[in-house]
Amino acid sequence: MNDYTVTIEKVIQESYDTRTLAFGWDAEVRPGQFVMVWVPGIDEIPMSVSGINGRTKSITVKAIGEATNALHTLSAGDRMRIRGPYGNGFDLSRGEMLIIGGGVGTAAVISATVQTGSDMIIAARSEKDIIMNDIASRYSKNLRIATDDGSAGFRGNAVQLMKEMVSAKHYDCIIACGPEVMLYFTYKACEELGLECQLSLERYMKCGAGVCGCCVMDDMRVCKDGPVFTKQQISELSEFGKSKRDACGRLISMR
């Protein structure tokens, strides 16, 4: 059994639409793993564990739909039923790493930065969408910000900034989570540059535990074989960057 009813200790406003819920949970969790979070009467959704701090863990929620809006109504003292941790997580023993978080995807990689102090890019549409730059600047040796509109840091997207940084310094591995279009071009850039990468992917999930097969990409289960995949694995995923499956299992084009 791996379901837990946890109590929220603290709510942190990360940006105008994103909050971190920190809760007491005495479980061993690796950066890149996730939990299934129950929103009673509404849904159950996969959420990356964004903070791993002893007995305190957290999830970071961007209010984009019914379930995430409901999670934004929770405050300290409220309870939450979660199950997990699920997924493989990142392999952080790959030498010099550059960690990239795009939008709320930053939540999935921030604990890797905290544990390794690696160089990091936080990318977002605009300054107001940037999250977790405070904690990142405390732990990362070299934090860079990229915004599409240039309102903060580098003007441009994460992959453009990554290329700039990679040309100035040697990295052994890129670690990234963000919108799939960002990950797709991150992967392409890593192919061109001959760089290893580990990308955290997302698909519609039901069980989260590797049995129902609902989140498969080709023959790989995002929930169990992933959500973190290496460059080699991604090269064999024909659906990556192209299509995803809906709740019925129908292939939906992403372009």
Partner: peptide, 27 residues
């Protein structure tokens, strides 16, 4: 095509698991 039941439709329990996927399938 059938979306099946809404989440949660799965949980591990002592001795196994309980699911109510609700026959999701693409038709």
């Amino acid at each position: 095509p059938n979306e099946g039941h809404k989440n949660p439709c799965f949980s591990e329990v002592c001795g196994g698991l309980v699911n109510a996927m609700g026959l999701p399938n693409p038709g």
